[in-house]
Design a protein around this nucleic acid. Structure first.
Length: 427
RNA sequence: GGAGAGAUGGCUGAGUGGUCGAAAGCGCUCCCCUGCUAAGGGAGUAAGGGCUAAAACCCCUUCGAGGGUUCGAAUCCCUCUCUCUCCGCCA
């Protein structure tokens, strides 16, 4: 959520910033509503004040044993006037809040202009793309030939966009997850966290998936609905929902491995083959809580932590800065990390690292005491994948493939694979 | 699933219709005292919003959430959510 005060005072500037995303914010309409709200609020508070003082007068008269009937008569119609005023004020405030919840975050000034993914800016590349001297296969061919990926079994029980992974490949995914968590907790100072996979609506409003992106989420039909988390960002960031931290409690860094569930409602026809885009996938997520003036540096740090994973796995990648038109709803600035997939001869997203500034903190009421003033102030939140395990598995398979269809195991994963160096078909 | 108890400020916890945004304690801030430390004494200390150029002042809201009763609700009534205890079931 954008600061409502800023919205009122600089609605036009806000509209200009949001227009870079292609979002049209009707500043005139918003300001007109605010103007009406102001008048109604002053009026309502005036009536409330009257009610309070007359109630007090009646109480005093009663205590003194005086006749308070005339006082009662004087406030006869006050209640009705007040409740009318209150309900129209509330109606207006709900409308304003709906608009505010629908507004994407302000972009950081450094975000490049652009319309879509084609306009994203490459920041750096790492690693050498291997020039195979045989015809490369994609992860689908490799996995099925090994007998370790079974899309048919998955679709029989769950339909499309699910995968069954078996044997050494299933273990390799687990190894990837263990390796990532160990690296982040032992070398990068994150606290490992186990979190719920089902959350209430409020948690998703806090991080910004709701109310706008309900279609992308799976929801239970229990009496009070649960949502399956689309990313560990949701439970991790909500660790500070409604929390007032002491001045010395920042920064904080959390890491969690969770499955992620996405209905992928808007992605029909994209990546239908293979396990690039699934309803369920595994991911290690990183979240930072920092003070307001520290989030820019934290984003660089966070992105670097995700890159370390790919470097240790010796997977070629590039970092791109998302342009104004491609950046996510709540993010002020985002770096995507894209890993090289030989099977597609393309870089594909494997991590997305974003600075949300106070956008989520405002929705969640995540604050800390300012060290000097002692007054509460919103914190900044950041999150990034560190990294998507399902896609990391694909990347390892395709980049470490051999002529005979076997797959080499990256050196850093071997300790998690009983020292094995290669995955070959079982006979 | 059944029975019961509860939800109050940064935290613990009192408060059952009016002068309660709320006792007390902890914590925190400032001051005093003590040669240092330990201890002691005093004062202050909720958040959000409106008004304001900004602030002060003033005003409004908030005692889990939402409704209701009342001139007036932390307090009474209803619904919901959450927490805890016991029983049942269960990895």
């Amino acid at each position: 959520m954008i600061d409502p005060k800023l919205l009122r005072q600089s609605a036009v500037d806000v509209a200009v910033n949001l227009a870079r995303r292609g979002y049209i914010f009707d500043a005139d309409e918003y300001l007109a509503l605010q103007e009406r709200r102001k008048i109604l609020q002053v009026e309502t508070q005036q009536l409330q004040s009257e009610r309070n003082s007359s109630a007090k007068a009646i109480g005093e008269a009663k205590a003194q044993g005086e006749d308070f009937e005339p006082l009662l008569a004087a406030v006869e119609d006050l209640g009705e006037r007040l409740s009318k005023s209150e309900s129209s004020l509330q109606e207006l405030q709900v409308r304003l809040r709906d608009i505010e919840l629908d507004l994407p975050n302000l972009l950081d000034d450094s975000v490049p202009d652009g319309k879509d993914a084609k306009d994203n800016v490459e920041v750096r590349t790492w690693g050498k793309i291997v020039d195979f001297d045989f015809e490369v296969r994609d992860h689908i061919d490799l996995g099925e030939a090994l007998g370790m990926i079974d899309f048919e079994a998955a679709s029989r029980m769950s339909g499309s966009r699910f995968t069954v992974i078996k044997g050494a490949l299933a273990r390799l995914q687990r190894a990837l997850i263990q390796f990532m968590l160990d690296t982040h907790t032992q070398e990068h100072g994150y606290e490992e966290t186990y979190v719920p996979y089902l959350v209430h609506e409020q948690a998703l409003i806090g991080t910004g998936q709701l109310p706008k992106f309900a279609d992308d989420l799976f929801k239970t039909d229990t009496e009070t609905p649960f949502y399956l988390i689309p990313t560990a960002e949701v439970p991790l960031t909500n660790l500070v929902c409604n929390v007032l931290l002491e001045a010395d409690q920042l920064p904080q860094k959390y890491a969690a491995h969770t499955p992620c569930f996405r209905s992928e409602a808007g992605s029909y026809g994209q990546d239908t083959r293979g396990m690039i885009r699934q309803h369920q996938f595994e991911k290690v997520e990183l979240v930072h809580f920092v003070a307001v003036d520290e989030s820019k540096a934290a984003l660089e740090l966070l992105t670097g932590h995700a890159e370390v994973i790919l470097q240790k796995l010796e997977l070629p990648y590039r970092v791109v800065e998302l342009c104004a038109g491609d950046i996510g709803f709540g993010s002020a600035k985002t770096y995507d990390i894209e890993v090289w997939l030989p099977g597609q001869q393309k870089y594909r997203e494997i991590s997305s690292c974003s600075n949300y500034n106070d956008f989520q903190a405002r929705r969640m009421k995540a604050r800390r005491r300012h060290p000097d003033t002692g007054k509460p102030e919103l914190i900044h939140t950041l999150n990034g994948s560190g990294v998507a395990a399902g896609r990391a598995l694909i990347a390892v398979m395709e980049n470490y493939q051999n002529d005979d269809g076997s797959i080499g195991i990256p050196a850093v994963l071997r300790p998690y694979m009983s020292g094995a160096e290669i995955i070959s078909a079982r006979h």
